[in-house]
Design a protein around this nucleic acid. Sequence first.
DNA 1: ATGTTAATGCAATTATGTTGCAAATATAGC
DNA 2: GCTATATTTGCAACATAATTGCATTAACAT
Lengths: 145, 145
Amino acid sequence: MENKTERFEKLLVKNGLKRTAPRLQVLEILSGRDSATSQPYLEQVMGKDADRVTLYRVLQAFEEKGIIHKVLDQQGTANYAICSDGCSAHEHHDEHVHFNCDNCHKIYCLDAVKVPALKVPAGFKVEHLNLIATGICASCSDKVN
Amino acid sequence: MENKTERFEKLLVKNGLKRTAPRLQVLEILSGRDSATSQPYLEQVMGKDADRVTLYRVLQAFEEKGIIHKVLDQQGTANYAICSDGCSAHEHHDEHVHFNCDNCHKIYCLDAVKVPALKVPAGFKVEHLNLIATGICASCSDKVN
DNA sequence: ATGTTAATGCAATTATGTTGCAAATATAGC
DNA sequence: GCTATATTTGCAACATAATTGCATTAACAT
Ligand SMILES: [Mn+2]
Ligand SMILES: [Mn+2]
Ligand SMILES: [Zn+2]
Ligand SMILES: [Zn+2]
């Protein structure tokens, strides 16, 4: 079986990106998490392995190529999650709902929950829909019980 | 007929807030706009009439009292709009859709468009829903034609 | 008019994100 | 395996949004 690092390297090459340490590390971290990951968290985990600016540029490149998508939490800080599939440099297809837990502050991609179509007033042309639900996540609900 | 300033003063008193110049000015500005207003815009318009910190604190107090609600734009910066009604210090009832124009960057409260209820995975408890649509607003669509 | 409490102003600090440029390095072609 | 080249990185500086502590000021209840 093909290992994870090999898959990531192929993913980079496929997207015309050189396979560098910071890029592989970001993919490694993001893929190992069950929720979207904030830029500050990534910065902290990567420490001096990569410069802050490099991290920002890696994230920007990945987003442009359709490898990851960005979700803003309720404070407006950027969180990133690997795109499920079907996303490319041309367009993202991540129109699923995101859930921002008020307790643990994690952001979950609810891939199974699609954003419903909307009827907007005449003249408005909708391009994208971002739906963020806030509340208590399944994991935090459990812990209370 | 009761003038606007009188109404604002009553609103402040009703919420246990002293009627100060910066607070009245913020209400004045927000009420005169057709879309949500960003903190940077408010700061610029108010100039040296009030300190930046005071502005932040006024906005925070208003939000807590249910006088205004905050909407984050696609960049994550805070925008504020006066609550239609039914909002209080206890809870906000602004579950309408927001529209962020890619062209003029204005954020419109689509008060008539309610956020549809959602079915989320077991365990998740939804508290609030924030739906931001992006695209081209009615005003910008007009101008192109 | 006075006292009390709330609100403001100022200075300093933190957090997030951006830009320009020189140095380093991944990799394509030889 | 080298070498040339374009990409990527690191560093320094900057920009912007937001927060904290504290002394001063001002609203308003009495
Ligand atoms: Mn997602
Ligand atoms: Mn609104
Ligand atoms: Zn949680
Ligand atoms: Zn517009």
